[in-house]
Amino acid sequence: MGGIENHKYAFDSNIKTMLNKNTIIALLLITAGIVVFITASRDVSTYSTFADAAGGERTKIVGTLAKNKPMTYDPENDPNTFRFFMTDSKGTEKEVILQKPKPQDFELSEQIVVTGKMQNESFVADEILMKCPSKYKDEEIAIKEQQ
């Protein structure tokens, strides 16, 4: 097994340069860390509203499905477009054009997060994440209603 009887190196003349080497590594790591942190923070943004997205940059918007407005998905003509209306956290309602087929159980969603940008008066999105009510909680209610 590897021992630690390295006493003969104790007074190695290179000790100073070796220390420097560790310092260099530490400095390199810190610099890399800072650089990465700065560049990475550009990838980060806040959930915005339709008003924030008006500038046309790519953003993520959280909202809820406007259930009283029509949803259109016409796969016969264009399977890659699903249109619906969403209400953002400020209460603004806008049309969202999702470049994907209509997700399953879309109507059940409690919350929607879409990623994309404003195009004219609509928000064109290519990513969607839905939060659906828990199935299990649902069942609990169902059981209670049966009584």
Binding site: A40, D43, V44, S45, T46, Y47, R58, K60, T115, E127
Partner: peptide, 16 residues
């Protein structure tokens, strides 16, 4: 406080 979120997670992770 307005929460922060990563815009496009997959490229973000891949890039580093």
């Amino acid at each position: 406080y307005i929460g922060k979120v990563i815009q496009d997670p997959i490229p973000h992770y891949n890039k580093y």
